[in-house]
């Protein structure tokens, strides 16, 4: 799990262009949206693409994203559960 979280940190920084962030600065339990990283609705859609592209997981209803992308840890948990 920790390994996956670390990998996700790097992927998120790259795909969401969080140029000013270092992986170490992202708290795996902090909310990704709202205050935390300042992500917005386009970032949420981009994370859906990331899950499909890098992990083969398709999220059919974007509304599910809110729970899945709550934090890095919830995201990693979702991937572990759903990856074939």
């Amino acid at each position: 799990m920790e390994e996956l979280i670390q990998k996700l940190k790097e992927e998120i920084i790259e795909v969401l262009n969080l140029e000013e962030m270092e992986p170490g600065e992202i708290d795996p339990d902090a909310p990704l949206f709202g205050e935390g990283l300042g992500l917005d609705s386009i970032d949420a859609l981009e994370l859906i693409v990331l899950l499909e592209k890098n992990y083969g997981i398709k999220i059919e209803d974007p509304k599910d994203g809110r729970k899945i992308f709550f934090s890095l840890r919830t995201m990693a948990e979702y991937i572990t559960e759903h990856q074939k």
Partner: peptide, 9 residues
């Protein structure tokens, strides 16, 4: 086939 919303916009 992975169109990116953040590119498309």
């Amino acid at each position: 086939y992975f169109p990116s919303p953040s590119n498309f916009v």
